[in-house]
Write a protein that binds this DNA or RNA. Sequence first.
DNA 1: GCAAAAGTGTTTCCTGTACACCCATGA
DNA 2: TCATGGGTGTACAGGAAACACTTTTGC
Lengths: 237, 237
Amino acid sequence: MIQYSNQTRILVAVDCIIFGFDGSDYKLLLIQRGFAPEKEKWSLMGGFLQFNESLDEAANRILYKLTGLEEVYMEQMHTFSRPDRDPVERTVAVAYVALIDIQKYKQQISDKFHAHWFRMNELPHLIFDHEEMVEMAKDQLRYKAALHPILFELLPKKFTLPHLQAMYESLYETKIDKRNFTRKVLSTNMLVKEKEKDKASSKKGAYYYSLDESRYKDGFQTVLNFIPKNEMPGAKE
Amino acid sequence: MIQYSNQTRILVAVDCIIFGFDGSDYKLLLIQRGFAPEKEKWSLMGGFLQFNESLDEAANRILYKLTGLEEVYMEQMHTFSRPDRDPVERTVAVAYVALIDIQKYKQQISDKFHAHWFRMNELPHLIFDHEEMVEMAKDQLRYKAALHPILFELLPKKFTLPHLQAMYESLYETKIDKRNFTRKVLSTNMLVKEKEKDKASSKKGAYYYSLDESRYKDGFQTVLNFIPKNEMPGAKE
DNA sequence: GCAAAAGTGTTTCCTGTACACCCATGA
DNA sequence: TCATGGGTGTACAGGAAACACTTTTGC
């Protein structure tokens, strides 16, 4: 077979940044690395690109291995390439971001990787450039969530409006007026009100809602405005 | 030196999607590939990642080789990885998007790569998956330009408001009311009115403007709204 | 009966949009 | 003088933000 001569062939890794939301905090799913170097240190879930798979396939394979979940929202974020980023050997790493429903995950978790959910502000030190990846993913999530209804991916099948609002307030570290928030969210027509209430987090109980999948898909690209302008990432003072 | 065993090492390519605007059309800078396979076919400007450089460095090296330009707006877009995307050998390709001022380029062009500007709607067939890359880059440009003042990167030092408006109208294939457009653009405070006029494209002449670099940098992240909502990519019908 | 969270409407302001005429100049 | 493209202001409408009280119920 013909080959390109005199070129360097290197390893291509895939690392998954897996976000969850537990009702009050954003969390990141991390594993304890099982091999040297940096054995036992905390790390993103990763692996190497195999010869006959695409990056998307690799990312899904890796995510499945860790969480048992398939058909999860995941997209490629950025490729990291500092020559010294992995001390063992030259490796570029393609970072993927996944948003998953923590509850769904709980039913499926395979624990052989010593995976653990960490609150975003209590992350341990991570190996290599994984902290940089996480920072970029957080920035990107804040950016995208302000414009598109992407956070719905983090919700369980049934959720309440206060739950949804808490997700936004936590991500932007701000308080949102619940009347305005409710109106905006419902005006997307992406939510369907259920008959039951969630009585767990209040005495009165809050109505459950679920996603109208087809309207959600249709409206995913539309530019929204859930977040007041002054709270937008990068807003002028 | 320790290595990761039993893993596939592959080639990492960098391909540059270079956009320009000539006053009425968007153009793409392509080269005729100088080596087999697909010799003489049109292609994005690309090259392989070298052992001791990052992807950003590789992209800039490649862009410089082709255009002679440095410090150009360029960012990583996406990594392409179909196993069969390069028939010679397994290769992943990291695509970068660059926006350059065609006039500036004209002074610097080195012609040894048989580079040529093609109008966006008259592109030749491209090798491998380069057409897919270009499509994604166009979509991304339309998306970003509707929200951020990114198209300024395509302008020469001095430009006129009609020139700027033509860029937006061409990108979104729409007509924009010039009174509204002018007001929005000037309200960013990113433009400085010059004293001279451009007499080339009208009898009356249009005032030149230039970028206020510091305000441009500060305001780059702010979410703008130059494009009427109905013309936004992905808008509902 | 009271504490704690859920739910709900109105007014104000601002931003976005539609729209038409005069100006300067080269030919 | 006329044809061409450049430049400017206003009125209206719709969306975003500010704002407070009532409801439910577990304890």
